[in-house]
Write a protein that binds this DNA or RNA. Sequence first.
RNA 1: GUCCGGGUGGCGGAAUAGGUAGACGCGCUAGCUUGAGGUGCUAGAGCCCGCAAGGGUGUGGGGGUUCAAGUCCCCCCUCGGACACCA
Length: 826
Amino acid sequence: MSQQGQDERETYDHEAMQAAWLPVWDELAPFRSGTPGDDRPKKYVLDMFPYPSGDLHMGHAEAYALGDVLARYWVLRGYNVMHPIGWDAFGLPAENAAIKRGENPRSWTYENIAQQKASMRRYACSFDWDRVLNTCDPEYYRWNQWLFLQMFNRGLAYRKDGAVNWCPSCQTVLANEQVVGGMCERCDGPVTKRKLNQWYLRITDYAQRLLDDMSQLEAGWPSKVLLMQRNWIGKSTGAKVSFEVEGRDEPITVYTTRPDTLYGATFMIVAADSDLAAELVAGTSVEVELVKYLEQVRAASDIERQSTDRPKTGVFLQRYATNPVNGERIPMWASDYVLADYGTGAIMAVPAHDQRDLDFALKFDLPVRVVVESDSDPKVTGVAVADDGLHINSGPLDGLNQDDAIAKILDVLAERGTGEYAENFRLRDWLISRQRYWGTPIPIIHCDACGQVPVPEDQLPVRLPELAGDQLRPQGVSPLAAAEEWVNVACPNCGNPAQRDADTMDTFFDSSWYFLRFLNPADDSQAFDPELAKQWLPVEQYVGGVTHAILHLLYARFFTKVLHDLGYLEFTEPFTKLLNQGMVVMNGSAMSKSRGNLVRLSDELDAHGVDAVRLTMVFAGPPEDDIDWADVSAAGARKFLARAWRLAGDVTSAPGANAADGDVALRKVTHKMVHECQLAVEDYRFNVVVARVMELVNAARKAIDSGCGPADAAVREAVEAAAIILSLVAPFTAEDMWARLAHAPSVMRAAWPQVDPALLVADAVTCAVQINGKLRDTFDVNPDVSEADLQEMALARPAVQTALAGAQPARVIVRAPKLVNVVIAS
RNA sequence: GUCCGGGUGGCGGAAUAGGUAGACGCGCUAGCUUGAGGUGCUAGAGCCCGCAAGGGUGUGGGGGUUCAAGUCCCCCCUCGGACACCA
């Protein structure tokens, strides 16, 4: 290498820094959180754990960069921060890979975990590597089974027949939450319906609490997520109303949110696929017709059902019910627009005031009666009238508005014993059975004599049998069912031959409580330690994608309440604050191989270095916004890091130099920037944090080159502050700066700089002078200037004098010390 | 269809309580450094008119409240997301 004399600049060598500092950090373990006797206040910062489907990608890089800013910040602020990581390691991709490779899913899964773990270390994630878990380890899923049994014993886990979502491609059932727009969340294939006997968790028992406890989350969760959950839970209020049915002993109850329109109910609809519908036509000539209709309905995929303007279909059941308030005989129909598993599976149709009912009525020429005053006639316009208004044709409700009419009709119904106030939830129980291999076996044994027998706790875990390759091929029943040696066991109760439940649990079960397992991941005596939970939980800060707004977050909230009720947890909400980061996209769309816009994280890290990539992620914009990688510059980030790093080499004062002796102007910048960074971090405005550090670096550069000079103590103070703040985002660079500043490692053990409030007061502020609201002049003033003085100074400005032209201002607004607005009447 | 977010320079984005719009950066231009490229440094810049001083205009569009509006209110356009026959 040729020497070029004094011009030779030191080079910022990120590769060398990585090589130098990773081993040091391993040694120092600055993010260890389990040390006994550590009396720092505790804080739990959690990143949503990844699914190990290959190496980390750009999305992970963003999420973990953001989580790291928070975790590292709180460590610097003196907290004992628990920041663990694990792997959500059960699931279909591993199984599909195993089939292809002729192996057990374990090998593929653990290979990917090892790779991701290595990438996380390279990426300098501030995880506590003593707190790690994989959900596919028997040591973990054992406690899934234990939890399941706790629920089973209390009736919260139960089996029932039902029409369930079925993914023909994945060959398994899906929870409602996993059907996205009629498509399978996993494979994007169309979802169909199947009647199966499956396991459910009684999340609907918790619907009201899931709703009510959101008040605890209002301050810490994005309102968007709360709204999505609220909508998903979907509470509605109304009434249950009983209709006598000709030729049937029992009346039929319907649920309606508009009991006030009861006088306008001109027919009744029963869910076509309900038992009720079948019963109503049993043995009649309509029976065949209904079956035929049902076949036709089933043939229609969910995608067709999606279409908003899909014409209504149905079958007249040749039966009649009686409207309880006016005694009117109304025909009964079956249709697929009424859902069997919502409300009572039957509705009173009020075509004048419900669009769907109107569509049906017009299609089948059924009567339409307006019972709420309106200018337009739904029968003519085809548009149902849903607005509030005065009731007509409604007996005792006539002349009342909607609220009053609802109150009145409830009275009337109560009096006659034919109806009452009722609530309904859109939320359904959580279907957790899956007909796949790579998941937690359901710890139940089916015995002809004893029924569903829980596996005794001392026999947990029920381990997965060793299956590989073609044995895992989906066939509509769980691959476990074919593992005869595994399936066939003696009943724990009576000892007779019995069978294990061959389904596995939805993997969302695993992730619904993993945050508790981090407390003591190696504990083989209990799922988690309630005592430790008391100390560390709830999770103070949760970081993850908005894709989990409903599924994972709702389930985790549900589990927390269940565990609370079981006496294991004192709190009822698991995550106090939630940050949803956006996605990393490329040229406007989600990255994918098929689109050809995939950016590989490892390539970016090779090209720019870890710190530059992290900095780019954080600086790109607000964390919840998407980042278009094409719009940001990792090269620019690297340039800045090199600038900051060089700064550290230019400081000539010794460590411990008394900052109080330093240049006051620079000190003011430093303290202001530290202060603003602090506010910005706590407000998730990480991009602004970076901007402020940049300003600090610029100020220090200027001070060294053309100000107080490199020996001034204020320069050291500024550069040290920059290094500490930068460590949130660019740990390698910051650590190297710290070393160049002649400090022992690690910068992560430094304390967040103390802000001196006296230094936050500016010497002078710029006062804006407006004339009629338009900026015409500025001048510097003392921040303490009085309103009167400021007004006088402003009025004396030439620009104002000229504008006034000798006249008096009509009005002067003074906001000392920042602004004076002189209003001149025209 | 319903419900939520957004729309600020060429680009990513800043903007405590309504109070100097465009912080910070990318890209760009000019100059210095360099054998060249890159790096580094200095300066410039919303747009329009002007050599300049200066003026006009400006946060999707229109209206309103106010001394003052990116920020508050009403209407519209547009992009994105969630839910999607839940009675």
